[in-house]
Nucleic acid binder design. Structure first.
Lengths: 220, 220
DNA sequence: GGCGTTAACTGAACATTGATAAGTTATCGG
DNA sequence: CCGATAACTTATCAATGTTCAGTTAACGCC
């Protein structure tokens, strides 16, 4: 019907088109993980949705964990892009930090499932939980370093803030940990317990940012 | 050696002593969950450690999930006790809030798996994820209501603080949400990413509490 | 056109998992 | 001693992640 591609035996890829299949798998796996969680998503079901046999999946990913890692990196990419945007458009270090927080919260709340996957390690076995927090010096093309990169940016922003003359109550790393964890806690909880009668979202996010920015600056 | 209990065929319980076995299972399961995590702990291994067959475990717990839930409730009792202790021994409302935060963080860091299970809903099927956030009016003898009870106490502490004359920057519920989420984020992250090079634990916890207490008080 | 190489894929199988069914043992009141 | 039944076991199930050994078909080359 469609016309292109000569009739192939039910979706078999031509030579050299493996990466296409790989992305099909990623796409299907993402959908299924988000729908049913990591544990309930089986290799067979992913393969089914793609239209291949289960072992074929192992041609593209070492194991289920590697699949998940690849997905995490993909998601982190989006967040890192958003942060790069801040670096380009905002000059004031304090504003950068605040925008970082807003971008982070926004990212989490608009991609709740991915956030769960990446930052909460929900429904993922212990073995891959440490994803995203390898040493910040790791090769960024390697899977699983997204989280560290994001954190590194925040530390950079805070270091700028300090060298620009603003006094901080803690070292930049500690400030970064505190600020991040405050926002992270809020986002994580709002995602995990949506049925809880939360106060207004904007109020909470702005409140959390206010509190933390005030809290880390020596002379507010 | 110990001497009591007549020689039994390798640990079989006398009639009516089932609850003993139940507690043995809970104990073994707790150890194993803490050592290896929820997923990696198999029913068979728990049964092995207790010295019974795997199916025997199902005489005492409906399934693996029920076992974990029972453990959660048991553990939560300790947190609620600790909070009750604060109510008894500390009068000053501000101190109460601070102690609450300390107790909460301490609880999370010393019971990471229970914390993950109840407050993060990690590694468990959706069905039990919402545990801990049922309506606060639920029967506390039912499994899985710990979280809501704990939050209620914090709101009470903050309300006391307000009625005692201290001005707050936000309503007590919002303050409670902000304070809780700050600490929660920190605890959650330290649990989920233990290999991250965190700043000093005490420093972070105290820092987070300082920031939030300063942040919610109108005139510090 | 035919041929060999090999990327892309499949079917059968394995070990391990949570869980159930059906049967067995031993305790204890009468 | 006996019958009821609490406490437990063996055998087994279906589902899972993963591997092995093979099969199919696309493509470069003669």
């Amino acid at each position: 019907m469609t016309g292109f591609a000569t009739v192939l035996p039910a979706g078999r890829k031509r030579r050299g088109e493996g990466h296409t299949r790989r992305e099909e798998i990623l796409h299907a796996a993402k959908d299924l993980f988000l729908e049913q969680g990591y544990d309930s998503t089986t290799i067979r079901r992913i393969a089914d949705r793609v239209g291949i046999s289960a072992p074929a999946l192992y041609l593209y990913f070492k194991d289920k964990e590697a699949l998940m890692l690849a997905l995490c990196d993909q998601t982190f990419g989006h967040l890192i892009e958003a942060i790069g945007e801040i670096e380009k458009t905002i000059a004031d270090p304090l504003q950068r930090v605040r925008r970082f927080g807003e971008a982070y919260a926004h990212f989490g709340l608009t991609h709740p499932d991915e956030y769960r996957l990446v930052f909460l390690g929900a429904n993922i076995p212990e073995s891959i939980r440490k994803v995203g927090h390898r040493a910040p010096t790791d090769d960024p093309t390697q899977p699983g370093v997204g989280g560290a990169l994001v954190f590194k940016r925040l530390v950079e922003f805070l270091s700028e803030l300090e060298t620009s003359g603003t006094k901080l109550n803690y070292p930049p790393d500690t400030c970064a940990e505190l600020c991040w964890m405050g926002i992270h806690g809020l986002v994580a909880a709002m995602i995990m317990k949506p049925e809880f009668p939360w106060s207004d979202r904007e109020l909470l996010i702005n409140g959390m940012l206010d509190i933390h920015l005030k809290g880390i600056l020596r002379n507010p």
